[in-house]
């Protein structure tokens, strides 16, 4: 079991509005319920996302503002602080990893983070996920040993368990799932397609039940940044 209250400050580092809600919001809610402050460093506004709503209501030029508001709404549901880093969707891997890492390091240190949660490169599928995770790992690597926060990383690639084994942390989010689903639904432009697909599937038993079945467990690997290549 995870002792949430033992942490003093959690910093979440993901590139897209909605990464936090789909993969980690149950964990975030458990930290918040234990009184631990959580700060989200969100890399981009997902400006280049393909999902425009189902049926679509956004376009390429309105999407950034729409996703920004969705992100703010989700962070309100999750009761966490939000910092938007201002990088551009789909371009993070072409930035200097060391410049991004330096920026992240300063923010991690300023927040006095005891735990950083990010993506596990190269097991995070989307290039931005892998690039953001690699920069976050590098940021922690650049810190003095005694000041380093713990690092938990999210892996989503199909080959993750073949390469990394079983995850170190498996969190059952059922007790907070109503709020997790609310956070996900804040990302209207991104979540509608998934919710629609769920409704159309033959084993649909209700939105809450179907979502719970798919998104109940959140998993993380504990990472020693000195022991990984990326």
């Amino acid at each position: 079991m995870v002792d949430f209250a033992k942490h003093e400050q959690v910093v979440i580092i993901y590139p897209h509005p909605d990464d936090e809600s789909f993969g980690t919001s149950g964990t975030i809610l458990n930290f918040r319920d234990a009184g631990v402050p959580v700060k989200y460093l969100c890399g981009t506004l997902g400006e280049m996302g393909r999902n425009m709503g189902t049926p679509f209501f956004a376009n390429r030029e309105t999407l950034p503002e729409i996703r920004k508001q969705e992100l703010i709404d989700a962070c309100n549901v999750l009761d966490m602080d939000l910092v938007m880093l201002g990088y551009r969707d789909k371009t993070l891997e072409f930035e200097s990893k060391y410049e991004v890492a330096e920026d992240l390091k300063q923010r991690i240190e300023a927040a006095d983070a005891t735990l950083v949660i990010t993506f596990y490169p190269p097991y995070a599928v989307h290039p931005d996920h892998n690039a953001m995770g690699a920069a976050a790992f590098e940021a922690v690597r650049q810190m003095d040993q005694d000041k380093r926060p713990e690092v938990w990383a999210t892996a989503i690639s199909n080959d993750r368990e073949a390469n990394l084994g079983e995850p170190d942390i498996v969190l059952d989010t059922e007790s907070v799932f109503d709020r997790k689903l609310a956070a996900i639904k804040s990302h209207k432009s991104q979540a509608e397609g998934m919710l629609r697909k769920m409704q159309e599937s033959s084993n649909f038993t209700g939105e809450y039940e179907s979502a719970l079945q798919r998104l109940r467990y959140e998993t993380f690997y504990k990472v020693d940044v000195d022991q990984v290549d990326s």
Partner: peptide
């Protein structure tokens, strides 16, 4: 769409509204 900034936006969407 011709948007409020006088930009001509043209896009192709699939059946689920995703931009292609």
């Amino acid at each position: 769409e011709m948007n409020e900034n006088d930009q001509l936006l043209m896009a192709g969407h699939d059946g689920e509204g995703r931009l292609m």
